[in-house]
Simulated assay, not measured.
Amino acid sequence: MTSTPNRNEDGPGIAFVCVQNAGRSQMAAAFAEREREARGFEDLEVVTGGTDPADAVHGEVVDAMRDAGIDLRDRTPREITPEEIDGCAYVVTMGCSAEGVCPATWSGENRDWGLEDPHGKEPEAVREIRDEIESRVNALFDELEDARSAD
């Protein structure tokens, strides 16, 4: 039985990580924050970051998320630290492999979603990536709800 990931003394429950933290991981974190509120997971912490952060969230990502009712204009890509990842029950990478992202001491569950980078893509392609991320975040929260019900 899996327990619901909550913040512990080491860090957040779910981390969404990619290289630049300017596209996929930003979208995933925003959808996770929305689901956390909608499903009553107040204690669940969500963090996002990159291993080599960009200067800004990609414009095409901001536009696609605005179409979905989420404003990312105030978000800034940031570096994720090993300490943040170490306390997570889940680390979700976006298609950039866990090997270069997760520290050897991390003992949670890694999921690599293998998603295409939206940077430089046409709006329709970015929306497809966005919708796939939203679907996967929803499925992850379905799992969390199932685990909470089993507790």
Rank of each mutant, 00 (worst) to 15 (best):
D112N: 11
G13Y: 02
C102D: 02
R130Q: 05
N6D: 03
T2A: 05
V126H: 10
E132R: 10
D43E: 08
A54S: 13
E132L: 13
D86W: 00
R7A: 12
E42C: 02
E35R: 04
G40C: 07
D146G: 06
V92H: 01
P82V: 10
E122I: 12
G87A: 01
E42L: 00
G108F: 11
H119V: 15
A22T: 05
E60T: 00
S25L: 02
D117N: 15
E132C: 11
F141N: 10
V62N: 00
R136Y: 06
Y90H: 12
V46K: 02
F41R: 02
A68M: 13
D67I: 04
A30E: 06
A15I: 05
D71K: 06
A68E: 15
M27W: 03
V47Y: 02
Y90R: 07
D142P: 11
N110P: 02
H119E: 13
V126F: 10
R127A: 14
G11S: 01
R130G: 04
E124F: 10
V57C: 07
M94N: 08
Q20I: 09
S149P: 00
A89N: 07
I133L: 13
A22E: 03
V62K: 01
R75C: 07
A104Q: 03
T4R: 13
E84H: 04
D55V: 08
Y90T: 00
D151K: 10
A38C: 07
E35Q: 06
S149V: 06
I129Q: 01
A139V: 14
V91S: 05
A139P: 12
G50M: 00
D117R: 14
V17F: 07
R78F: 07
V91Y: 03
D10S: 09
M65R: 03
A147S: 12
A64F: 00
R73L: 03
G11T: 04
D131K: 12
D151L: 15
R7N: 09
Q26N: 00
E145G: 07
V62R: 02
P53R: 02
R24W: 03
H58V: 04
S107D: 15
F141E: 07
G49L: 02
R36Q: 09
R127F: 08
P77G: 04
T105I: 14
A56K: 11
E143Q: 15
S25G: 01
R7S: 09
D55C: 05
C18L: 04
E116Q: 13
G87M: 06
E42R: 03
M94C: 08
S149C: 08
T4I: 15
S149H: 09
E134V: 14
A64D: 06
E42F: 00
E9T: 10
S135A: 15
G11C: 07
F141S: 11
K121G: 03
R66E: 12
N21G: 09
G100T: 09
R136A: 08
D71R: 05
V57Y: 09
T4E: 14
S3R: 05
V19W: 14
A15N: 05
L144M: 13
